[in-house]
Design a protein around this nucleic acid. Structure first.
Length: 439
RNA sequence: GUGGCUAUGGUGAAACGGUUAUCACGGCGGUUUGUGGUACCGCUAUUACGGGUUCGAUUCCCGUUAGCCACCCCA
């Protein structure tokens, strides 16, 4: 913790400098260009595919996530920011958006809208994790949900859409695909899986042993070196799919082939939230051969059985959703050497000398509003030298100089910053003269 | 929650255990107060915190805290 001792302060021996909460980040102005670009692209893509914006709150009843994400999951078990508010409600800062989307759909009777309902939102999520590269306690997601259809073409469309988004940002990505079937299928499969893995029990790490009893599916995800061999011989969920589930998955993949989406099957892909059925996927950057730690920049899947579980009417056929991690997208962009569009440079810099000029100058500065000319200033500085220095640093084409003399004469100096030549023009016509000079 | 590494100014770095902790960049101010890009000058750090070893600690040791990285999990 950075501490500073106050110079010569007899009373205060030391005091703590203010600092960020662990795992939280300020997005500094230097990164704003990236954030803008990603947010703008997310909005544009959402609109291109006729998704409607919904703005969800950051706080919900804790039970919403506990029920949907799953009691046994890490997210619920140890990563939620849950607390009791003044009204004695247990509330949670959202760790993800899907549950909220489903809640909003049901609560606002969206079953009465034309189906499927396509919604999007973007904003901060909270997970009480140990911070690490690309992982923060507050992070941002762009979230898409399509509720009210179980057609595999929807699965494909969501993926096509994500692909389009990432392509627009200049990223090359790969989709890892798998199908988790239905709840019944998974139950049957897990029995086999546990039976298979039990023979390797002695060689397993403690975490893997825990997984064997608690969440056997996650064993497939294990990165322990000894597990890789065992995994290779493990029964695969794909082989347990019934005809319907298999057809759904195959159809989805067909559409992806049709659109030449870069994907690969990953029979070991299982996701850390309980509500998924059928199609699940994760997005990784394509040129990464090595499995890096936090390489997933997004993911999602279908959650048909969640809707009735939450109380949706039977006619709600199914739903699928996806989320992209904004921070990870930006990290990937930087790694790929993609530069964000530069902010527009100001064309003009306004300099003032003396109090009268400063007062008049406030008006002059305002007169540029709506002209389309970007003008910068440094009213806080008084020496002309310092102001021109700044004008130079900002790389403006022309500087305006208003001094005592000019105020009295009703004129202003237009200085060409490249050639150094100056022109004295009437103050009332300054904007039109500047417009001319910029041509 | 488990493990590894690191901690010097706004930033990046330097300093065999021995003077007022060095350099660069940035920032602010100045070079007789009305003219930029160059130059010069000044200011910009009780070396994360606490303790120990020592005549002497930025340097060695311990603890705390924080950061980074990996596991777990995920975005």
């Amino acid at each position: 913790m950075p501490t500073k001792k106050k110079k010569g302060g007899a009373d205060i021996a030391s005091f703590k400098l203010p600092e960020l909460l662990k795992g939280f980040k300020d997005v500094l102005p230097e990164d704003e260009l990236y954030w803008n670009m990603v947010f703008d692209t997310a909005r544009n893509v959402s609109e291109d595919y006729s998704f409607d914006r919904i703005r969800l709150p950051m706080l919900e009843k804790a039970a919403l996530f506990e029920r949907t994400v799953g009691k046994g999951t890490d997210i619920v078990e140890k990563e939620m920011f849950t607390f009791v508010d003044k009204g004695n409600d247990r509330v949670t800062l959202r760790p993800e958006m899907t549950a909220q989307m489903a809640r909003a759909y049901i609560e606002h009777g969206m079953v009465n809208m034309s189906q499927p309902v396509k919604l999007w939102d973007i904003g901060p999520m909270f997970r009480y994790d140990k911070p690490q590269a690309g992982r923060y306690r507050q992070f941002h997601q762009w979230d898409l949900e399509v509720i009210g259809s179980d057609d595999p073409v929807i699965d494909a469309q969501v993926i096509i859409m994500l692909n389009s988004f990432l392509k627009r940002l200049g990223l090359k990505v790969k989709f890892k695909m798998n199908s988790l079937g239905t709840r019944d299928i998974r139950e049957a499969y897990v029995l086999e899986l546990v039976a298979y893995f039990k023979q390797f029990r002695k060689h397993m790490s403690d975490t893997d042993k825990k997984r064997l009893t608690k969440n056997p599916l996650r064993l497939l995800d294990s990165k322990e070196p000894e597990m890789q061999e065992c995994k290779a011989g493990a029964p695969q969920l794909i082989d347990f799919l019934d005809e319907k589930a298999r057809a759904h998955f195959m159809k989805t993949l067909e559409y992806l082939d049709e659109m030449e989406i870069n994907y690969e099957l990953d029979p070991f892909l299982v996701r850390g939230l309980d509500y998924y059925d059928h199609t699940v996927f994760e997005i990784v950057t394509a040129d990464d051969d090595e499995e890096k730690a936090q390489n997933a920049i997004g993911g999602g899947g279908r959650y048909d059985s969640l809707m009735p579980l939450m109380g949706a009417r039977e006619e709600v056929k199914g739903a699928i959703g996806a989320a992209i991690g904004i921070e990870r997208v930006i990290i990937a962009m930087k790694e790929a050497g993609i530069e964000a569009k530069k902010k527009q440079n100001p064309d003009v810099f306004f300099c003032q000398l003396g109090d009268a000029a400063r007062r008049k100058g406030l008006h002059v500065f305002e007169s540029f509003r709506g002209t389309g000319i970007l003008i910068a200033e440094a009213f806080g500085k008084s020496s002309l030298k310092a102001q021109l220095e700044m004008a130079n640093k900002k790389k403006v084409k022309i500087a305006l100089i208003l001094g005592q003399k000019e105020v009295l004469d009703g004129t202003i100096i237009i200085r060409d910053m490249e050639t150094g030549s100056q022109e004295i023009v009437p103050l009332e016509k300054v904007t039109s003269f500047v417009k001319k000079a910029l041509k």
